[in-house]
Design a protein around this nucleic acid. Sequence first.
RNA 1: GCCCGGGUGGUGGAAUGGUAGACACUGGGGACUUAAAAUCCCCUGUUCGUAAGGACGUGUGGGUUCGAGUCCCGCCCCGGGCACCA
Length: 860
Amino acid sequence: MMETHCKEYDFQQIEPKWQTFWTENNTFRAEQDTSLPKYYALDMFPYPSGAGLHLGHCENYAITDIMARFKRAQGYNVLYPIGWDAFGLPTENYAVKTGRHPVDITKENILTYTRQLRQIGLSNDYSREVNTTDPEYFRWTQWIWLQLFQQGLAYVEDKPVWWCPALGTVLANEEIIDGKSEVGSHPVERRPLRQWVLRITAYADRLLDGLKNLDWPDSTKRMQAAWIGRSEGSEVEFDIDGFTDERLKIFTTRVDTIYGATYMVIAPEHNLAEQLTIASQKTDVERYTRLAASKSDLERTELAKDKTGVFTGSYAINPASGGKIPIWVADYVLASYGTGAIMAVPAHDERDYEFAQKYNLPCTQVIAPVDGSSAKLPYCEKVGEVVLINSEAYSGMTPKVATGKLDQQFSEAGRGKSTIQFKLRDWLFSRQRYWGEPFPIVWVSAENYNRSVAIHTLKVPADPVTAMFDGVLRYALPIPESSLPLRLPEVQSYNPTGTGESPLAKMPDWLEIWYEPSTGAAVAAIEAKPGDQWIRARRETNTMPQWAGSCWYYLRYVDPKNRESLASADMLEYWGTPDIYVGGAEHAVLHLLYARFWHKVLFDLGVVPTDEPFRKLFHQGIILGEDGEKMSKSRGNVANPDEIIKSYGADSLRLYLMFLGPLDAMKPWNPKGIEGVHRFLQKVWRECVDQEGKPNPKIDPDTQDSGEFLKLLHETIKKVGDDLSNLRYNTAVSQMMIFANGLQKTQTVSRNSVLAFLQILAPFAPHICEELWARLGQKTPLAKTIWPTYDAKRLEAKEAKLVFQVNGKFRGDQLLPIEISQDIAIEHAMENNKVAAQVAGKTIKRVIFIPGKILNLVVS
RNA sequence: GCCCGGGUGGUGGAAUGGUAGACACUGGGGACUUAAAAUCCCCUGUUCGUAAGGACGUGUGGGUUCGAGUCCCGCCCCGGGCACCA
């Protein structure tokens, strides 16, 4: 016997019982049989923090688990894996604080998470568990990184980056919110450091185009599109008065307004800034550029809406009009976008207008409404018909035509072209911390680099990656793939050095080495040189950011134990990519963009057969506190899943989370509400078993259910199936409640009807359904059974309520055969007192009759 | 400022252009009970009316339609994202 023997609905006994049963029987292990139709359901894997699971996790995983159980019942071979995104700052910070090893902390946290996830009844296949901090996993993270490196998609740059003194590390643009660190809201500052950068911009166009075919929430697609920020425009080179060998190149989306360009602006970091500054302006410009360089992000964007700038003293020649226009330095122009220089057209750009007003720069209108009406400056309208004015030969043309002609003119003159710019920047891909993947390269001399590459036929980028160390140029030499993984050394202290280097920099024996390029073998440099082949090398002290491991974990699940490759071609072909990917909208840009980038690189290398990782994406809504505010400890409005499970059981928790409202909507948690779904499960329990825990005598294998009851059953089967497929779980739960209310009113019911109901309820409330299934004498576990089918004939009704309306207003209804004619319907309607009263003394002008639904009499 | 999403009872929410408020929560009344809990039944948008019945009602003002929560236009409010990207 599989079932428990409790008489009441004792979920504390039932739930662990079935969790154990499923685990012991490997009920949810994905089959190896690739002839079966497959379904791959994936959650965004958790970061195993010390805090444990919260309700948001529960919602997220319940959605996917229910889908996985539903698809299994539909006959799919389902892959529903779980793993751990375990590198990262919180664990390292905790290690710093406690002096414990991050590996031990991680292990402990994973145990907690595993226990909690099992407790909510998830049907994960634990035989495929992955952990980003496992060397057998991150060897492939490093392997993928090596492919990027070899493709020339990874490079090193010594550039000002966001340095956070409190965290002791550099942060990416994306990790800065309002001029503060996303983690902990610490202040950040600019600091030049040697960084690894990934050339994601090389894929900008494809990352944008690829969005079109994805079944993602529109808002998320729009966010990514905005982040990539494709912009069509023109590059134009302006001559500089008094210079013969330098021109000032600008990017504009409105080359048609070039006759209105009355001044130029270059970014403070522009490489011509110094050259263009005349002696008398030198002090002012230098002071300004120095100030701009030291400004934090906050000061430069948030607080400095008030535009500032300094005149360089130089002039550019407008290539269209031939006019001499001043060149200014101002930090409202960003060095990192376009060419770091603009032509300013104050009449048709709000920013330029504001600046021109402040510094009394001229303003020439060159665009006007075609109807000759006057326009208020700055005139930036994108709607309505406009033409060029004050633009010599181009006056009278539309902007579109003028843009084409000007592009052509400048192109022929060798000073311009139409071009495309992206907002997307290359991806800062190194952290000065311990708890991340080490980079699989060593720094060597030019001579050793060239020799190693020649002798050992290492795959290296076309242009070597180099960096200066203590005034000496070093080359980045990849370590052989056969020597992966490159593990983290044991360190005494996890504290950041505070110098911009990771704790790894304090490990001289690991850092400075004798190195064998063909095997990757290394010994400390203080030892004797082991042999002729060995060269002097220095390891990379940066580690990879947390995004690295999460960029490809969905690929590892299809073949998690593979030692020859990140996953076999067969498994990648069969399982492909997730059929549904569920996770929070907060990852709309970063994780989802990075993963798409890596996936496309792997596709280009022939490693994966598809060019997009996540065809279908769904974001669960945030669960708010009882007070409608975001749950937080300080507010004291946090609902704890462990406590809820203790009081009501996992089935009630799952069911209630799904019943709260649309899955993607933000919803407040109502502690009273869960009692409703709990009562529903109690009701189901009592309908199935009597007070002794034996099958309820009303369930009779031989009874014939009424047509009405069967209609309800089949409607329910249909609606629950449809709603599951369309991720409308809340209305599926409602329908099952309606069914249970109907079931309660029956005197007797056939066992088959009850069993079918348990099957459709099972994805939502798997434990109680397995238990009742077994108690009703079923020997096969419910989780292994096939979804019931509904009979469309059962859904048809011969009679339906016909609604009577007069002038579109409800005046009554009547149960009538669907087939009746309009005339008969009117006769019935007129027998209704209310209808008759409304029609009395008036003439029927028009009749709208929809059989079985509505009869609307239009009277005057 | 720009781009999205959303405003429906006391609450969460439901409604292929066709009876607005399904299903729940809360509240009220009743049954069972010595009593309570649990369970079951009834009521629960506003308003006028003793009642029968009527009027009003999906943020707001218009429009389309026989008929609008749903479609179109304007406005208000809330939530999210982006924010000097030329």
